[in-house]
Amino acid sequence: MQSSRRTFLRQASLGLSAAILSPYLFSCQGNKTGNGPFHQLGIQLYSIRDLIGVDPVKTLETVAKIGYKHVETFGVDAAAGKYWDLPITELKNVLEDNGLKTHSGHYDMSKYLSRHHQEKENIEKYIEIAHQLGQSFVVAPVTPMDDLNNLKVEDYQYAAEQLNKAGEMAKKAGIKIGYHNHFWEFRNFANGTKGLDILIAFTEPDLVDFELDIYWIEKAGLKPQSYFERYPGRFSMWHIKDMDKQYTTPVVGEKYDKAGFMDIMKEIKYTEVGTGAIDYINIANYANKSGLQYAFVEQDDIYMPNKFESIKKSYDYIERSLAK
Rank of each mutant, 00 (worst) to 15 (best):
L151I: 14
Q40G: 02
Y280E: 04
E96C: 05
F235W: 00
V54H: 04
F137M: 06
F261D: 09
S136V: 06
F8V: 11
A80G: 10
N306E: 10
G174M: 03
A287F: 03
D263A: 15
D85H: 11
R10N: 14
K125W: 02
E211M: 08
L9G: 14
A323C: 13
T203R: 05
N282A: 14
V57F: 02
N181L: 01
K82A: 07
D279N: 15
A166R: 02
N93G: 11
E211N: 09
I43A: 04
S321N: 15
R187S: 07
G75V: 03
I48N: 01
P305F: 07
Q132F: 06
A323D: 12
Q132N: 12
H239W: 03
L151T: 12
N35L: 07
D213A: 03
W84N: 08
G260R: 12
K32H: 11
Y46C: 02
K32G: 04
W84H: 09
K176S: 05
K307P: 00
I240E: 06
Y294N: 02
F308T: 11
Y107L: 08
W216I: 06
L163G: 07
Q225K: 12
E128N: 08
D257N: 15
A12C: 10
L100V: 09
Q132M: 14
A160V: 09
S17E: 13
F202Y: 15
I268E: 03
G260M: 12
K289Y: 00
V142Y: 11
N35D: 12
Y107A: 04
L199W: 04
I268M: 13
I175V: 07
V94F: 02
N188R: 10
A323N: 13
Q293G: 07
Y247D: 07
V252D: 05
N98V: 03
S226T: 12
Y156L: 12
K266I: 08
N31Q: 14
A159T: 07
L91H: 04
L41S: 02
L9S: 07
F210T: 00
R230A: 13
I48F: 01
I48H: 01
K111L: 11
D300G: 05
I200L: 09
G30T: 12
T102V: 10
K172A: 14
K172M: 07
